[in-house]
């Protein structure tokens, strides 16, 4: 049995083969799906912010407790207090969106600064930043968050602050290794010989031209991470507190009724979490494969 792989020539000007055509079909599917999720999240955020929801998410309807999906205008059914699940899912995004962005912003900004310090100037700075990131890495993140929550209050922003800070070492080490790799290629040295100022080299040659892909990918992965973190904490009861809906506390609240056969109050937010995180990860993965190449 012979299994043939097909290789076909591209007719036309060789350098005209566009960026997207060179990409793997699978990567493109990842990216399209990821973008779809991102758009869905943004649209949900806007809808939630404008209160354009099918039902009032806080409205308790004692006549329709645990209504299964698609009853009386409730597309995904209602929960144990008769609140519309779809509306709560949409408004739940509010709990993630801005805090998630905060976490990303902290991780990327501080990570980039430390990465550049360590990679570009090296020497003692490199040693110091490496020690700091080792320190951060060796401290269990969940414990840190629980400490913060115990010390202050169970606020989503506190949690995201910690998530962002604990993500700094990962970003910093990525940026650092990228800079060390670029330094081997000599063009940074050539730029110095040209008389360019350090900040031009750092911002233009290193960050803008060679690290932006990494940063975008880290941003998508960071968002997924933030959602996951909030979910686990809410499930444990430390995250967003009732009655403010978040996907994590929806799963937690619904889980009590799961064994009674009422699967939808917990399954709907669980699936939402699954597909959203998958979307962000696939987006990051696809972008990584296309922008950075499969090997590196």
């Amino acid at each position: 049995m012979k299994r043939y792989s097909q290789y076909t020539i591209e007719v036309g000007d060789l350098w005209d083969v566009s960026f997207w055509k060179k990409a793997d079909t699978m990567d493109l599917i990842y990216i399209v799906y990821g973008l779809f999720i991102v758009i869905l999240v943004v649209v949900s955020y806007v809808l939630g912010a404008l209160s354009l929801l099918p039902h009032n998410p806080q409205e308790i309807n004692l006549e329709l407790l645990m209504a299964p999906p698609n009853t009386a205008g409730h597309l995904l059914g209602t929960d144990f207090m008769g609140r519309d699940i779809l509306s709560r899912l949409i408004i739940g995004i509010q709990a993630y969106f801005l805090p998630g962005l905060l976490a990303i912003a902290i991780a990327l900004t501080a990570g980039t600064i430390f990465g550049v310090l360590a990679g570009y100037w090296g020497g003692g700075l490199d040693t110091t930043t490496t020690y700091i990131s080792n320190l951060l890495n060796s401290f269990p993140r969940l414990v840190l968050i629980l400490l913060m929550v115990a010390a202050f209050k169970p606020d989503i922003y506190t949690i995201m602050l910690v998530v962002g800070v604990t993500n700094i070492p990962a970003v910093a080490s990525l940026i650092r290794s990228k800079i060390l790799f670029l330094k081997q290629k000599n063009f940074i040295e050539a730029a110095m010989a040209l008389g360019l100022k350090s900040w031009v080299i750092i911002f233009k040659h290193i960050l803008w031209h060679n690290c932006r892909a990494i940063l975008i990918i880290q941003a998508t992965l960071g968002m997924a991470e933030a959602i996951l973190m909030e979910t686990s904490l809410s499930y444990l009861g430390f995250g967003v507190q009732e009655p403010t809906p978040s996907w994590g506390n929806m799963v937690q609240a619904g889980a009590n009724y799961f064994m009674q056969g009422n699967f939808w109050p917990s399954t709907a937010p669980a699936l939402a979490i699954l597909f959203t995180i998958l979307g962000f990860h696939l987006l990051g993965d696809g972008l990584n494969n296309i922008l950075e190449g499969k090997r590196g």
Partner: peptide
């Protein structure tokens, strides 16, 4: 004063 580097790619940022 300028330098011509041994490495052919030296002067050339691959993304520019």
């Amino acid at each position: 004063m300028q330098m011509i580097f041994q490495d052919l790619d030296a002067a050339l940022n691959p993304k520019m």
